[in-house]
Computed example of a mutant assay.
Amino acid sequence: MQFKVIENRNMTAQDDEKDVYFIRLTYEEPADYDAGDWLLVESQNRPDLVDFVLQLLGLSGDEMIEVRRVGERTVRDALRENYELTQLNPAILNRMQREYDLDQWADRDAMMAYADGRDIVDLLQAFPQLQSLGAEFCKMLSPLSPRYYSIASSQKSAAAQSYAGRMVDLVYKKIAYHKEGRDRLGVATYQLSDLKVGDVIEGDFCANKVFKLPEDLAHNKQPLIMVGAGTGIAPYIGFMEEIAYEHPQHFANTWLFFGETREQTCFLCQDQLQSWEAQGFHLLTAFSRDQAEKVYVQDLLWQHREDVWAQLEAGGIFYLCGDKTKMAKDVEQTMKRILVEVGKIEDPDLVWKEWRRARKVQSDVY
């Protein structure tokens, strides 16, 4: 389905190290979503990246290839619209090792470590023998998948109601960095950041069945503990908009632990959060670079461990959204420490596992 841009702005324009955007989209087709769901954004590879790959493969781009589940296409069109170029799938390395008698990686873990942070150009440059495959090389490439973004709005918000509920917000970080002599750009975030008001993109809604507000907030005082850093704030904005619309009395039982780098330039959604805070919402922030000793969300959780445990004992739900490689692991480790030292839990791993199964712990990490 199509989405039309009505707002797209850089929320961290004053920061020298990152570009985090807020984009508001409207749509005409009847479609519902819940706070916590995802928007899948269709994207295409950049023409300059496609040209570089064609050059390495010694192709003009006009050659024809058969794309699985699509049909016959020119190599150029296929590389632009059908194949993954900005990420390296470890499965490609496995196939290379099997078909070309390579002994480069000991196991899948080694392949995953090698693939992390590399793209298809890196692969072709590291293994020049692949360049001679020409169009045949494309058969090893993974399909270009849509990118998932946590929705940062509720259809029940005042803003959404002004568009008859057919409005959706996203908060996303533009991926752009320089490595080994080349600019590396996120296939979807770079495209999104370039959109102007009135532009149209393709996408679709996708339900996230394991990251939801409880259905019975109107009838209980079940605490909500939300933890997120950076763009991990996104689904909580949707949660808070829904609470503000339907259950404002629940602000007193809602906690947000939010982390970023600097308060002055990276306090995402600051006005919204502080307006809810004034209505009784518990907002705790950690800006890691605003003091000599860095403070992160897991440090905030530990500082407020007695309150956190009290909310969990009262039947609270613990939500976690953000980077899975470090932040999520550090938060989980801190929470298990709280279980042991404050809750006197003997086997925190078992309890945490049980809580996840019972959805007392819910995560949306990436």
Results as ranks from 00 to 15, higher is better:
Q291Y: 04
P30S: 13
G315A: 04
Q311H: 09
Q272V: 11
E202N: 13
T285E: 11
L123D: 03
V210S: 08
R305F: 12
M112T: 13
E306G: 12
E246K: 09
V53Q: 08
A314C: 07
K336V: 07
F318T: 02
W105T: 04
K336S: 13
Y33M: 06
W38N: 09
D183V: 14
V295R: 06
D16V: 07
D204M: 11
Q311P: 00
P214K: 11
R68V: 15
D204P: 08
P146V: 04
T12Q: 06
Q311N: 13
D62M: 12
M111T: 01
R337H: 12
L79I: 10
G238H: 03
R108A: 12
A207I: 11
P128R: 01
D77M: 05
I243C: 10
C138H: 07
R356A: 14
T26Y: 00
L224K: 01
G198Y: 00
R80L: 07
E7V: 12
F137L: 00
L301S: 00
E215H: 08
E72W: 10
S60Y: 12
R69Q: 14
D116V: 09
V227M: 00
Q298A: 10
E72T: 15
I151Q: 07
Y177S: 00
E277L: 07
Y21P: 02
C266W: 09
Q14T: 09
E63H: 03
V168F: 06
A78M: 04
S60I: 08
R305I: 11
S363G: 02
Y163S: 11
M327K: 04
A164T: 06
H178P: 02
D216K: 14
D51A: 15
F3T: 04
L88M: 12
D37G: 09
D199Y: 13
D15V: 01
A207K: 13
V53S: 08
D101M: 03
G203R: 04
G61F: 06
Q104Y: 15
Y163R: 09
M327G: 04
K294D: 08
D204Q: 14
N8L: 05
Q87V: 05
F205T: 02
A292V: 13
G238D: 07
V342H: 10
F211I: 05
F205M: 01
L59V: 02
D116R: 12
V331W: 00
D48T: 15
D48S: 14
V200A: 07
L144K: 03
L124G: 05
H178W: 13
L40Y: 05
A207Y: 09
G322I: 09
M167V: 08
I6L: 08
L217E: 01
M1H: 15
A328N: 02
G259C: 02
V227G: 06
D347K: 14
L39P: 03
A188V: 13
E63I: 10
L350H: 06
Y236W: 04
E17Y: 07
H282L: 06
